[in-house]
Design a protein around this nucleic acid. Structure first.
Lengths: 148, 148
DNA sequence: TTGCGTGCAAAGGTTTTGCATGGCA
DNA sequence: TGCCATGCAAAACCTTTGCACGCAA
C-alpha cells in the first residue's frame, strides 16, 4: 500500500522502538513522551502525534479509545501476524491485548456476514472484558463488584 | 440501584426525549446542543454533560468512544431489551447501531470464557464494520477503496 | 424553604496547526 | 539542494468545575 512513507529519522526510530518494546499493551502519547524524556532523548509532543498518525495510516500501529482513559491509546501490530484474520481481546483491568486465534470466532464473522448482512472489520473490532488473571485478582480483592 | 435519581427538570426531559428519538443511532453533546438550540430550547453545554453523566450512571444511556469521532458518543438503551445479553453491531459509515439477537454470538461468549478464560463484557464490546445498506452504496459509488 | 439543577465563564487536558529551523535523501 | 520532519508556541477542541441564581419537591 505504500513502501516508502516518509523519511527515516531518529525520532521515528525512537517511537517505533518504544512501540515494539511494548507490543503486549497499549501506550499513550504522554507515556512515550515521559519515557523518552527520562532516557535522555526527549522529543516534541507534536512530533509524537504526527509520527503516530503516519504509523496508524501505514497500519503499523493501531489507535484505541478506551473508556477509562481520557486520551488516545496506541499499540504496535505485528506485521507477520495477520491481525486482519483474527480478533483481539482487550482486558479493561490490565490493558493486556490478546490475539485470539480461534476458528469459532472466524465462523462468527462469516455467520454475521451471511445471516445478518454485516461485514465485521477485525481490525477495528475489539472484545472488551476481563482476562483470567485479573478475574482471579478480582475475586481475591473485591468479593463483590458494586457501585459504591 | 436508583429509583429517584434527581429532580425532574425541563432540561432533563428535553435531553431524554432527544435520546429516545434517536435510539437507533448515537449522538454527541454538540448534536444535542445544536438540535435543542435550533428548536428554540437551548440549554447549556455543562448541563448536557452533567445530565448525560447521570443517565449513564443510571444505565439509561450508554457512552461510546468511536475512533472516527473526537468526542464522546451517547446512545439511549432500551430498558426492556436486555442489552447485557446480546451484542451490538455499529456501522462505521452511517453510525447505525444494530442489536444482534443471535444465539451464535451468545455461544461465542461462553466459548471464549471457557476455552480462553476471558470474560467478554457485552455492554462494552461493539462489533465495528459496515452494514448491508452502506456496503451496497459503497459498491455503487466507490468501485475500489484506496488511499489516493 | 431546602437543596439540587442550571447557566455562564473559566480552567484543565488533549490534540492540532503555523512557522522557522534542522536533517534526510 | 529540495523537501520533509522537528520543535516550540499558540490555537482549537472537548470536557470539567466554581459560583450565583432559579426551580423542583
Amino acid at each position: 500500500m505504500n513502501g516508502s512513507n516518509g523519511y527515516k529519522t531518529k525520532q521515528r526510530d525512537l517511537i517505533l522502538n518504544y512501540m515494539t518494546s511494548h507490543r503486549e499493551s497499549h501506550v499513550t502519547v504522554n507515556g512515550i513522551s515521559d519515557h523518552l524524556a527520562s532516557h535522555g532523548t526527549p522529543i516534541g509532543t507534536a512530533t509524537i502525534y504526527r509520527q503516530l498518525e503516519k504509523l496508524v495510516e501505514q497500519g503499523v500501529v493501531r489507535k484505541y479509545t478506551v473508556d477509562s482513559s481520557t486520551c488516545a491509546c496506541f499499540q504496535y501490530v505485528e506485521p507477520d501476524m495477520k491481525c486482519h484474520e483474527h480478533f483481539h481481546l482487550k482486558c479493561e483491568r490490565c490493558g493486556k491485548l490478546i490475539h485470539l486465534e480461534c476458528d469459532f470466532v472466524r465462523e462468527l464473522a462469516s455467520h454475521v456476514q451471511s445471516e445478518h448482512g454485516f461485514a465485521i472489520d477485525p481490525l477495528r473490532t475489539v472484545f472488551y472484558g476481563v482476562c483470567r488473571d485479573c478475574a482471579d485478582l478480582n475475586e481475591k480483592n473485591y468479593p463483590e463488584e458494586d457501585n459504591e
